[in-house]
């Protein structure tokens, strides 16, 4: 049996926001429940009131708005995997969805829940960080867009206030000739939390040099992180082994790995190096193909 709580079942988003405001700070949103239900059962979370946001129509779309790809926070990982629009303009996020948990969990788990849960190992975060994603935080009568990089404060802690809900996620459609990929290392192939995850985005200019780059890491610090020092190294350069090596070393420096049930600190550091290097090497191979094609 789960511990007892009150469960509110709003039918619209405004109603849900009113309910969150009415019961703050004792109310929490419930989406797919793939984090929250086990956490309730284990006693990790003890909210008095849950506000169900799963299935709210207003949170359930993926579309293009001007130069942005925009999706509602209620979109499931299965929806992300199936979306042609995300395949075309957010491949890095789709790659994370492909290796996320397993099909049963992906059918329930939402992007909003993955962000709201704020695990250092949340797999949608490194991809959304390299896409420079923004989140829409809404409360009754108000809303604001915040950069994802400013969203996380600490393990399981974000700037989202008790009365607020993540309602949408958006990113600018990346320029043509953009490479974006995600890799995670896990202890087995499915249903496994990341030991380390890495996302990389590289945009090539006319000359074949990298004009813009982003590198993000998961599970190596209290929150997922962007590695701006590595990006500085890549920007304006051709992706030579030397440049890749320098960027990778910055990624390893930025990581503050700890040991836990999944890995020792030393192994995490090693894997951060290997995965970052591999993704940048793939970017390099891809950039050569682009160059040959043009």
């Amino acid at each position: 049996m789960l511990p007892s709580f009150e469960l509110l079942m709003p039918e619209t988003l405004p109603e849900a926001l009113e309910m969150l405001a009415g019961y703050a700070p004792d109310a929490m949103p419930l989406a797919g429940g793939t984090n929250l239900v086990p956490d309730l059962r284990g006693g990790k979370r003890r909210p008095g009131v849950l506000v169900n946001v799963h299935g709210l129509d207003a949170l359930q779309y993926i579309g293009r708005q001007d130069r942005y790809v925009v999706m509602g926070a209620g979109v499931s990982l299965a929806d992300v995997l199936e979306s042609e629009l995300i395949g075309a303009h957010g491949r890095v996020l789709q790659e994370a969805a492909r290796v996320f948990a397993n099909p049963l969990i992906r059918n329930r788990a939402t992007v909003g829940g993955n962000l709201g849960n704020a695990s250092p190992a949340a797999d949608t975060v490194p991809p959304l960080l390299v896409l420079d994603a923004e989140l829409k935080l809404a409360s009754a009568g108000e809303s604001r867009w915040v950069g994802l990089e400013d969203f996380f404060v600490d393990v399981c802690d974000t700037i989202c206030r008790h009365v607020e809900l993540i309602t949408a996620v958006r990113w600018l459609v990346p320029p043509p000739r953009t490479f974006s990929r995600f890799r995670k290392l896990t202890l087995r192939k499915s249903t496994a939390i990341s030991v380390v995850s890495v996302a990389v985005r590289v945009t090539l200019g006319e000359s074949g040099r990298c004009v813009d780059a982003a590198v993000a890491l998961g599970a190596v610090a209290p929150t997922p992180i962007r590695v701006h020092e590595a990006e500085e190294v890549l920007r304006g350069e051709a992706l030579t082994p030397e440049v890749i090596d320098r960027a990778t070393r910055f990624a390893c420096t930025a990581a503050s790995c700890i040991g836990d049930v999944r890995s020792s600190a030393a192994y995490r550091e090693r894997v951060t190096d290997v995965l970052t290097r591999r993704l940048l090497a793939e970017a390099q191979e891809w950039s050569e193909e682009q160059w040959e094609r043009s």
Binding site: L30, G32, G33, T34, G55, I105, N107, R108
Partner: peptide, 15 residues
Amino acid sequence: LNGRAVNSCLVLAWQ
């Protein structure tokens, strides 16, 4: 659940 395979232990009955 509506055609999608899910873990029923993670779904609340009301949902």
